[in-house]
Simulated scan of single mutants.
Amino acid sequence: MIRIETPLTDETVERLRAGDRVLISGVIYTARDAAHKRMVEALQRGEPPPFDLKGQIIYYVGPTPPKPGQVIGSAGPTTAIRMDKYVEPLLKLGLKGMIGKGYRSPQVKELLVKYKAVYFAAVGGVAVLLAKAIKSSEVIAYEDLGTEAIRRLIVEDFPVIVANDIYGGDIFEEGRRRFARIDL
């Protein structure tokens, strides 16, 4: 298990390899489809993003409202490939990590190598457990999007797996290769 803290540096990202189990502590930001679209459209108009992307991680999640006494409701990952068309402008501004569920397009995997960034997979189906690693949650932009608003989360030992690294490593491709070698 590798422990890392945000914001991420090139040195931290260079240490990570596809398949590594990682615990993240520090600040991460949430954004899903609608927030990504709005951020990229703002960038295209020459407006700054709602937070400094340098070294940051975006978690693809739309958490449910918290119950009394909770910091956040269920906070499971959403399918990452839906954000692929928005990735490059954010990487250009220094985004270093993304957390989601499922594989990424070949284009995004190339961008991860080009911009020295990493894609982490969070396990779907364990949203309540993931929420326990979230110590605080604050809406910082696009409040009108409800659960899809951008939030600043403080996390402690948030569990993820490196799915795609800066060396072209891909746990999904590796998993398919391993399964193909099994005699059934």
Score class of each variant (00 low, 15 high):
Met1Tyr: 07
Met1Trp: 03
Ile2Lys: 15
Ile4Cys: 04
Glu5Ile: 08
Pro7Gln: 07
Arg17Met: 13
Asp20Ala: 06
Asp20Tyr: 05
Arg21Trp: 10
Ser25His: 12
Arg32His: 13
Arg32Ala: 11
Asp33Cys: 09
His36Asp: 10
His36Cys: 09
His36Val: 12
Ala42Ser: 10
Ala42Glu: 13
Gln44Ser: 03
Gln44Leu: 13
Glu47Ser: 12
Ile58Phe: 13
Ile58Leu: 05
Gly62Cys: 13
Pro63Thr: 06
Thr64Arg: 15
Pro66Ala: 01
Gln70Leu: 10
Gly73Ser: 06
Gly73Gln: 10
Gly76His: 05
Ala80Met: 15
Tyr86Glu: 04
Lys92Asp: 01
Leu93Cys: 03
Gly94Arg: 02
Leu95Asp: 00
Leu95Gln: 00
Arg104Glu: 01
Ser105Asn: 01
Pro106Gln: 00
Gln107Tyr: 11
Glu110Ile: 04
Lys114Leu: 08
Val118Ala: 12
Val118Tyr: 04
Tyr119Phe: 15
Gly125Gln: 07
Val126Met: 14
Val128Arg: 13
Val128His: 01
Ala131Gln: 11
Ala133Asn: 10
Glu138Cys: 04
Val139Ile: 15
Glu143Cys: 01
Glu143Lys: 11
Ile150Arg: 06
Ile154Thr: 14
Ile161Leu: 09
Asp165His: 11
Ile166Ala: 15
Tyr167Ile: 06
Gly169His: 01
Ile171Met: 09
Gly175Trp: 06
Arg177Ala: 13
Ile182Tyr: 04
Ile182Thr: 05
